[in-house]
Each structure stands twice: as C-alpha cells, then as structure tokens.
C-alpha cells in the first residue's frame, strides 16, 4: 500500500493507494501517526478513493486514528470510498462515527 500526504488548511490529507489489510496496516499506521505529529494540523482526512481492498484491519486502523484525532479535539473525514469499501464501513458503524464524503 502506497501512502501520500498533502495539506488542506489545518487538515492532513492521506491519500492511500492499494490494499489495506493486516500485512500493510502496521506500516501505514506508523507513517500516518508520525506525519500527523510533525505537521501543524488538527484534522485528518483519509482519502480512500484508491483503496482497492480493505478488511477489518482497515476498520481498526480508521478507528485507531479517529481516537487519536479526537483526543486533540480534531475531526476526521473519510473521502470517496469505493462501493465494496463503503459496505464494510457501513457494517462496522464507522459511518455513524466519522463524517463521510462520498
């Protein structure tokens, strides 16, 4: 899985590309957390438009990041998940907890 960062105001945008599973999640998690600490940002935007596969490891990763962002009073947004990924987000109730920009 490939991860690229950009900034939109006080939000860190994470463009994730490829397959998000247990194997890829640990490195992605580490990269996002490091970047989020280093940048002068408050909010986190996860762009999932190029994520081609995600299982419950992705749910864990998203909820884990949400906890960190909420802790500092920031907000989290999920951007453009593909239909298959929307299904798993809906199932895990992430949709009720995190704003989704389809």
């Amino acid at each position: 899985m490939d991860v690229r960062f950009s900034r939109e105001g006080n939000s860190l945008v994470v463009m994730m590309e490829g397959e998000l599973d247990h194997h890829t999640a640990s490195r992605v998690r580490e990269r996002i957390d490091n970047k989020f600490l280093m940048e002068p940002v408050k909010n986190l935007i996860l762009d999932l438009s190029r994520v081609t596969f995600m299982d419950s490891a992705g749910i864990g990763l998203i909820l884990g990041r949400m906890n960190r962002v909420t802790l500092i009073g920031g907000k989290m947004l999920i951007r453009k998940p593909k239909p298959e990924i929307q299904r798993i987000l809906r199932m895990s109730r992430i949709e009720e907890l995190i704003e989704l920009d389809a």
């Binding site: 299982d55 419950s56 864990g60």
Partner: peptide, 14 residues
Amino acid sequence: DLERSGMGFTVMET
C-alpha cells in the same frame, strides 16, 4: 492492543 476491532467473524458471517 493490535488495533483489532473484533469485527472479523461478523464480516465473514455477513
């Protein structure tokens, strides 16, 4: 501790 969400079996079942 591993950021598991406890949703694996629910996903398989669904």
